[in-house]
């Protein structure tokens, strides 16, 4: 009997993966990747993603990552061949380089769309896939037009750009046939970026003042280093302030159909996690990387919740489509971060 629950409570995501388990998976992935001269990396990616998705729970059901290794391998090879050509052309032919460079710029919106589509179409929850419907023309406007506007206005329209960018990604996402949507949050984004910018400005001025105070030479070396390290911490705090507030804001302005999404990351806790992660990774020569990934994931997911509006049992599946992994692997190589 399907439960007809009438539920208005807040249900948070939950991550059940363990660092020890993930460490072993990670290590075997690296070993097999090296032994196969990189070919296994496609399988490694799948196993990593499956582990991270499969341990993400909502209402006691887990998520699923459905991409196949051969798709990833093919996408990876095409992207790698393109970038190989791109790098070589830099030395051999400036014309080809120019053409490819313009090509990359024009293709970026397409790459973003294809990558989103690939990732969402290969994500399922309760046997229903997510999906992405964004089209090239709107993506071109958001990811090419608006950055142009931002540079023309000397950065003053950046918060507006962030709003449009997140809105584009969220509004075009769906779970089955139910759409995600985001309410505009431009004024709040302005407030966040302006305060972060002000803090950054104060920090830089303070640093400049300090450096001019202690002067140059041997005697100034130690205080300069100490103050520099202090500055790094201040910058991390500003970065944390920005990331946490923007993430919270965007998710709190979003909903899936009529179900509200919430997010309550805390700056202190988030910064502490990122700080100890970086420190741990460096001091352990990278060995604590899996631990770092797991604990950040556990914290982030635990802060995201969905406020169910009555019934979560009746989401309906949509027709599924096959999408190749070329866009996804391009964006991997380009290191495009969608910030979601």
């Amino acid at each position: 009997m399907t439960m007809q629950n009438t539920d208005f409570r807040l249900h948070s995501l939950e991550f059940r993966g363990s660092a020890g388990e993930f460490f072993k998976i990670w290590l075997v992935n690296i070993l097999l990747t090296l032994l196969t001269l990189g070919i296994y990396s496609a399988w490694a990616k799948i196993r990593t993603q499956r582990y991270l998705y499969g341990n993400t729970y909502l209402f006691g059901s887990s998520f699923e990552y459905l991409a196949e290794p051969l798709q990833i391998l093919k996408g990876r090879m095409i992207a790698a061949a393109f970038f190989g050509l791109f790098i070589l052309s830099e030395y051999y032919s400036s014309i080809l380089y120019g053409i490819l460079f313009i090509g990359v710029i024009l293709l970026t919106p397409l790459i973003i769309i294809r990558s989103m589509r690939f990732n969402l179409a290969n994500t399922a929850y309760r046997n229903i896939r997510l999906g992405f419907d964004g089209n090239y023309r709107s993506a071109l406007l958001v990811f090419m037009g608006l950055p142009l506007l931002v540079s023309l206005t000397a950065g003053l329209t950046y918060p507006y750009f962030v709003n449009q960018w997140k809105k584009f990604l969220i509004d075009n996402s769906r779970y089955g046939t139910m759409h995600f949507s985001m309410r505009a949050a431009t004024p709040e984004l302005y407030r966040i970026y302006l305060s972060a910018g002000a803090a950054f400005f104060v920090a830089i001025v303070a640093f400049g003042f300090f450096v001019s105070m202690v002067g140059k030479g041997q005697a100034a070396a130690v205080p300069t280093v100490v103050f520099g390290v202090l500055m790094l911490h201040v910058l991390l705090l500003i970065y944390g302030y920005m990331t946490v507030n923007v993430t919270n804001l965007i998710i709190n302005h979003s909903q899936l159909h009529t179900h509200r999404l919430t997010c309550n990351l805390e700056i202190g806790q988030y910064c502490w996690l990122v700080y100890t992660n970086v420190l741990g990774i460096i001091l352990s020569f990278g060995l604590l990387t899996p631990w770092a990934i797991i604990r950040l994931k556990r914290y982030k997911l635990s802060c995201i919740a969905i406020q169910v509006d009555g019934d979560f049992e009746r989401f309906v599946a949509a027709e599924s489509e096959k999408i190749d992994a070329i866009g996804e692997e391009f964006s991997d190589l380009l290191d495009i971060d969608f910030g979601l």
Partner: peptide, 14 residues
């Protein structure tokens, strides 16, 4: 990149 390839933003330092 291949060794630590699937590592995301937190450890780009790494």
């Amino acid at each position: 990149a291949v060794t630590l390839g699937d590592v995301t933003s937190i450890s780009s330092v790494a």
